[in-house]
Amino acid sequence: MSLLFSIGEGIRGMGKARLAMTLSVSSMILTLLLLGSYLIFALNLNQWITDLREKVEIEVFMEPEARQTSIAQVKQALEKQPEIETVQYVSKADAAKRFEEEFGQNIYDILESNPLPPSFIVQLKEPYRSSKKIMELAAGWKNLPEVDEVVYQKMLLAALENYIRWIQLGAVAAGLFITIISISLIYNTIRLTVYARKDMIYIMRLVGATERFIKRPFLVEGLIQGLIAAVFASLIVFYGVKIVKTFIYPYITMDNRIYVGMLLFAVGIGFVSAGLSVRKYLRIV
């Protein structure tokens, strides 16, 4: 009975303080959009970083005249390593073909023999794609029989690691900032809805309602406001992403967990803000 009463009062309260409720839901939608955009940005940034790192290849060059036994030995050693995702062997003939593809000239038209060495193109698993790890592995591979040198995009990797750390830090700071702004904005607008019903709070206290009982309708209200805001914000984000994908940036990535996150954030913050606002208000009236 008392729970039904609280739900009824919560819904009734929203209808009564329409302006405050509209303000509150609007500010929630705005902050959710901000948060949603941030999450999409962070997700795509992460995706971009992963893609870039995937492109980092390591080439293990053998001596130009390496023996087949050495090549087989190196291949076996590389394939055994747990850090490695793929190993692709490029024979002297393959290298000549690649040369022709890249430079448009047959190597035999320029030289009498093929000086290009056989090599292995190695791709590491995701967690090992750091310059530190690559350096470590490369040092080991250099000691394998008839390995001439190990080459990888040192500059690209260094730049990635240098800038990405700052970009990620900046993104985290922006996320924190947005979250704090969101919480304070939503908290303050929910306080408006509580203030609009100060008379009811006073009368409830007067006739002996417990604090928990007084809070309940406001908590219900906070939950419903969060839910409404999350639905609207999710719809806007959904169509926003569609528009961006169609007209601006076709590679944009979206994850359904962002919608779930927005919903949980909105409902949680609605609930907590309402609880805090009433508690604060109960101390005053």
Partner: peptide, 16 residues
């Protein structure tokens, strides 16, 4: 926003 009946009933409703 409540009629006579609901205003009087309010103090009983909040006490369950």
């Amino acid at each position: 926003d409540r009629n006579v009946f609901d205003n009087i009933a309010f103090s009983m409703r909040v006490t369950g």
